[in-house]
Nucleic acid binder design. Sequence first.
DNA 1: ATAAATATTTAGACGAGTCTAAAAAAATAT
DNA 2: ATATTTTTTTAGACTCGTCTAAATATTTAT
Lengths: 218, 218
Amino acid sequence: MLSFTEENYLKSIYHLSNGGSKAVLTNELAESMNTKAASVTDMIKKLSAKSLISYEKYYGVKITKQGKAEALTIIRKHRLWETFLVSKLGFNWDEVHDVAEQLEHIQSALLIEKLDEFLGYPTADPHGHSIPDKHGKIKAVRHILLTDLLLKKKSTVQSVKQGSPSFLQYLNKIGIYIGVGIMVLERVEFDGSLEIQLDGKKKVFISRDAASNLMVTE
Amino acid sequence: MLSFTEENYLKSIYHLSNGGSKAVLTNELAESMNTKAASVTDMIKKLSAKSLISYEKYYGVKITKQGKAEALTIIRKHRLWETFLVSKLGFNWDEVHDVAEQLEHIQSALLIEKLDEFLGYPTADPHGHSIPDKHGKIKAVRHILLTDLLLKKKSTVQSVKQGSPSFLQYLNKIGIYIGVGIMVLERVEFDGSLEIQLDGKKKVFISRDAASNLMVTE
DNA sequence: ATAAATATTTAGACGAGTCTAAAAAAATAT
DNA sequence: ATATTTTTTTAGACTCGTCTAAATATTTAT
């Protein structure tokens, strides 16, 4: 059985490698885990010995099939708990991350299956991220960055790429939520910010940075 | 902030001391924590340094007011989670303990308040144990051991003292659950077993051991 | 192609929580 | 009241995950 820490490393490796499609460097991992490179090297050896990642000195790590399965289980748990917190307990979408980081480590397959059923087998969490099913399958979603959306094309907000509380609160304030209709009216040459129109004719400007954190339907 | 381990020790001390009304010996604690006396001595020093218990060498430990408050918070969390698992997720009452042992350590006061609200502020968990409120107040319940119930007196099953899965499964099988009406028809002199009558006229025999694990209304 | 800068690994140490074995204190029995 | 048994504590060691400092490998710049 994996420790809390091993699970966190694995999840991080999965995310940093874009689901296993590239190698992850020691320093990247150290940064994302808020730890030191030396500690990462140690943990890499452990995970490697368990065949959850493959490791080549001075090159980086790649997640194995087995490691990917573990990572997806943790991600599934995280996203189911986030969904529970928002849809059942009434949390806001910017309040759930830290609690879900804890809940994702609870060990009970039965619990997760029952929770999934209780929630009605949701396919996406409150931030619009797909929830892997019990076999680790993720529903592929077609989406593009808001920055790449054609002018005047009607679209829908599908997910946030990075969901820090302050960003989510900002989205709340300007009326952006998962599922809202959206259209880009104009692209400002100067700073790349966008004038957008939301459901109900609401027009707002958002920065290029914010727009590049939003995924919308094609 | 307390570690997972410190919380478990504190909870154990609370229970073994009957809510703080007597000192707990090192060996008792070692037994209940499934560890060795030497390890207990070490942890005792830690908790003592944090003023959660008071400790006299070769005598035992007593929980302090502060320690009691911590213990009650953990017990509150445990029982709320058990209630959630049974009433919302459809677990059986014999399946919830181990998962709740994990969930009770999740750190989020907001989570517990929201969970409490979601469950409708329950006052007892699936085993009939009182759930402390957010201030640590426990509803006092009048109850006696089934072994002490007068013959032919109508009563109601209120809680199980010790709730191992196998005991709970046995209760299921013979039709005993929290809230069922119960009456002692006869006490067998030989082995102390009881012939009881449940709601719906069902008559069964239960051993003295089983009966001394059941609490009923006076 | 060599020097400088950057990234990674090794070596050795630490704190938390645990253990075993031995010492010390307390309780019990004769 | 002394010897024996039981309980508790101390001493020292081990694992896990972490750290700093130093060594080594790789990359980048000139």
